[in-house]
């Protein structure tokens, strides 16, 4: 990547960070973005017990935390800018499409993933305080790796899909709603599957290799990530954005 391109991306990152940390008048967003994950990071390990560091729910939250955060930041960054009529002015500047896209994408991913990592660290501290009893509890290597990979891929997937949806939605709110619905579909489908095929699953699960399932899940997410970003990049072109 050329120096110019990186400088342009840094400029967009600078603007995005200024915008995010200056929404003093919308305190509910502060809560959703920063406080809610931290509260969950305290409550979940407290109630779950010492198995928190080696159980499935950690991974589930590692997946959902960036989804919730980026569901807000990415839709605001694209659909919100268009709604506020600042996107057209940005597009009329010299910034290349790719720099705008990458700057906004990276910013959301970095914010969403960073908050998730803080959440995971905080929940580990909480697990130790509540259930350590003099011993240091650590995430098992599999859970730690799964948390890192899942949260990162969930962040990039939400950002990619979020851009695509934002560029078609009329408002940031509509984009956020569609994005959430879209990302919830596989989860609901999973739940329905569990209810419908409970007996078969109970018979099957002990024979399955958990690490293999995790690897397959991560591989599928990686492919979906690439496809989502490719679609977003294809859609994010000046000539296609304005009517």
């Amino acid at each position: 990547m050329s120096t110019f391109a990186w400088n342009d991306i840094r400029t967009v990152l600078w603007k995005e960070s200024k915008s995010l940390f200056k929404f003093r008048e919308n305190r509910s967003r502060y809560f959703t973005l920063f406080l809610a994950p931290m509260l969950l990071g305290l409550v979940f390990p407290w109630t779950w017990g010492p198995d928190w560091v080696k159980d499935f729910p950690t991974m589930l939250l590692a997946f959902f935390t960036p989804v919730l955060i980026i569901g807000i930041t990415i839709t605001d960054s694209f659909a919100g800018e268009r709604e506020r009529h600042t996107l057209e002015t940005l597009l009329s500047s010299r910034l290349p499409d790719r720099s705008i896209l990458l700057g906004k994408y990276l910013f959301s991913v970095v914010v969403g993933w960073s908050i998730t990592l803080v959440f995971l660290l905080l929940s580990l501290v909480m697990a130790n305080i509540a259930h350590g009893h003099g011993q240091i509890l650590l995430y098992t290597p599999t859970v730690a790796l799964a948390d890192l990979a899942l949260s990162f891929l969930a962040a990039t997937l939400t950002a990619g899909v979020g851009i695509h949806i934002s560029l078609r939605a009329a408002t940031a709110q509509q984009a956020a709603q569609i994005l959430m619905a879209f990302l919830m579909i596989p989860i609901v489908a999973l739940q329905v599957g569990v209810v419908l095929f409970r007996d078969q699953l109970n018979a099957l699960l002990p024979r399955l290799n958990g690490e293999l399932i995790l690897t397959i899940t991560l591989a599928v997410m990686l492919i979906l990530d690439v496809v989502a970003f490719w679609l977003a990049a294809r859609r994010f072109q000046r000539a296609k954005l304005l009517f």
Binding site: K18, S19, H85, E88, R94, L95
Partner: peptide, 22 residues
């Protein structure tokens, strides 16, 4: 363009600073 295109949550100086960087 048709709308001012200013970032309303930013200050006047930050708006110009951003486009100066651009």
């Amino acid at each position: 363009l048709e709308y001012s295109g200013l970032y309303e949550q930013l200050s006047a100086e930050e708006n110009l600073e951003f486009y100066g960087r651009v």
